[in-house]
């Protein structure tokens, strides 16, 4: 199997706080890779390191065989890594379709002159954004909402728009940060199916999620973080039976962290 994303000894310190501490991780092509852990375990920070939002304190990150440590987020995105955010970052005041059109940025190459003279490059780009954008919107089931301002949609749908926008990049790897947060049970079920479907179509996906059922049912491999450290990695069965994981979530008799299991 081909390695798609590899973290070697990656750390991130915020002052004295070791938010991510010497984490090693490998995501293979075709994985649905789950990352779980209690609140504040460093999951989001780890995603931020992979996607270039923060520079690492130590360690190296390889994507598709290339060293991407400390590259800018837009360069990493161009290399084929797309992501969503835990605190949804949509362009709230743009319509759903406009949001997704911006996702096509890296696949278009209109220059100033093309835009002013409406050259064939411009026409091709606009057509691509419009048509492929509609295609993606239909795929995530938001066709009726395409002209609604993204910020006015309910949370569950906003998460879907964010995923759709990331899909517009046609990424090799999709990072989803708590995609089911704020969704009702039906939407969560649909999301699970959707993620599996995307995986069948060839997308590799890494997902952070608190909902255990979600992770156990969709992911083929899971990594558990606690206080920035990796405490366990393996298939769902292995993680479920791991003693350290249970302790991390429930503490040794007392509830230490507010994990939602």
């Amino acid at each position: 199997m081909k390695v798609l994303l590899e973290a070697k000894n990656v750390s991130k310190h915020f002052g004295g706080l070791k938010a991510v501490d010497n984490v090693d991780m490998v995501i293979y092509e075709g994985d649905i890779f789950g990352i779980i852990g209690p609140n504040g375990a460093g999951k989001t920070t780890f995603f931020n390191l992979c996607s270039g939002v923060f520079p690492v304190t130590g360690g190296e990150i390889y994507f598709n065989g290339e060293n991407i440590t400390n590259l800018r987020p837009d360069i990493i995105a161009k290399k084929g890594m797309a992501r969503t955010f835990q605190n949804i970052k949509l362009f709230n005041y743009m319509s759903v379709l406009e949001n997704i059109k911006i996702g096509f940025h890296i696949h278009s190459r209109t220059r100033m002159w093309d835009a002013i003279l409406h050259t064939s490059v411009y026409k091709r780009d606009e057509k691509l954004a419009e048509e492929k954008g509609m295609e993606i919107i239909e795929r995530v089931g938001l066709k009726d909402y395409k002209d609604i301002l993204a910020g006015n949609l309910p949370y569950g749908m906003q998460r879907m728009v964010e995923i759709a926008r990331a899909l517009a990049l046609d990424p090799k790897l999709l990072l989803l940060d708590e995609p089911a947060a704020g969704m009702n049970p039906n939407e969560t079920m649909a999301l699970m199916e959707f993620i599996k479907k995307l995986n069948h179509e060839g997308y590799t996906i890494a997902v952070i999620e608190h909902d255990m059922k979600f992770v156990m049912n969709t992911c083929n491999r899971i990594m558990v973080l606690n206080f920035g450290k990796k405490i366990c990695e393996g298939d769902p069965e292995y993680v479920r039976s791991n003693k350290e994981v249970n302790e991390a979530y429930f503490g040794k008799g007392i509830v230490v962290q507010g994990g939602t299991m």
Binding site: S51, V53, A77, F85, K89, F91, H105, I106, A166, A168
Partner: peptide, 17 residues
């Protein structure tokens, strides 16, 4: 569109390349 995406949310714009 790129300009407006920067106006609305620079971090999100960057994550989209």
């Amino acid at each position: 569109r790129a300009w407006m995406s920067i106006r609305e949310d620079e971090q999100a714009a960057r994550s989209l390349g």
